[in-house]
Amino acid sequence: MNNHSIHRVVCISFIVLLFFSCKHGDGEYHGVTDKIKAKSENYHGTSLSSEPYLEGVETIEITEGEHSFLIPERKSQIKSFACTECHSKPLSQLQSKDGKKAHWDIKLHHANENTMNCVTCHDGNDMNNLKSLTGNSIDFNNSYNLCNQCHTKQFEDWKGGAHGKRIGGWAPPRASMTCVNCHNPHKPHFETRWPARFNTQIIKERE
């Protein structure tokens, strides 16, 4: 009787062993989330940096809340900056007939006419800067402060990194596009267009 039960125990343990020896090569973690949590506890950086890939992009560092990162510098990218080079006189004078036409191609497609017009963002008295809804001056380089007055949710996502494309690489330091790098402030939506590719082989395969 004893012999029998010993036999059984040996058999069962062998089978159990067989099952556990298979597959569960690294069963230290229950899932990848646990693994991330455990492994990042004593994270001490990597040797990689995306700095080399940011060369040639002029950036400025901003700090918003607990997030600190780089965004492209804006003013040097605006063709006719500084604005005061033309806007030396008040607008009413410039709009008279003898003045040269400028910005004729800009049509505002941003919210509706009730909500926004030129002076919602631009300051007729200080053309080199933008202005907030309450009339505070905002630097062109920090134009995101203008957008986040309405787009608060997007702003949160952008600060964290869920919205807005990274520049350079994934490695620190973080550099992200700012709002106006992707969205034309006068016409912020994305255009429809044709896809970059069409796979004719797949059509054949699925005939």
């Binding site: 990042s40 990597t46 990194g161 869920a162 994934w170 992707c182």
Partner: peptide, 30 residues
């Protein structure tokens, strides 16, 4: 240290790539 080509090519920023072990990375924030 670079982003994959798909991340770099995406014009909408829909693709986010990064180091899951870096608590300050954008992917971790997401």
């Amino acid at each position: 240290g670079k982003n994959p080509a798909c991340v770099e090519a995406c014009p909408t920023g829909a693709r986010i790539f990064g180091n899951l072990l870096d608590p300050n990375s954008t992917i971790r924030w997401v």
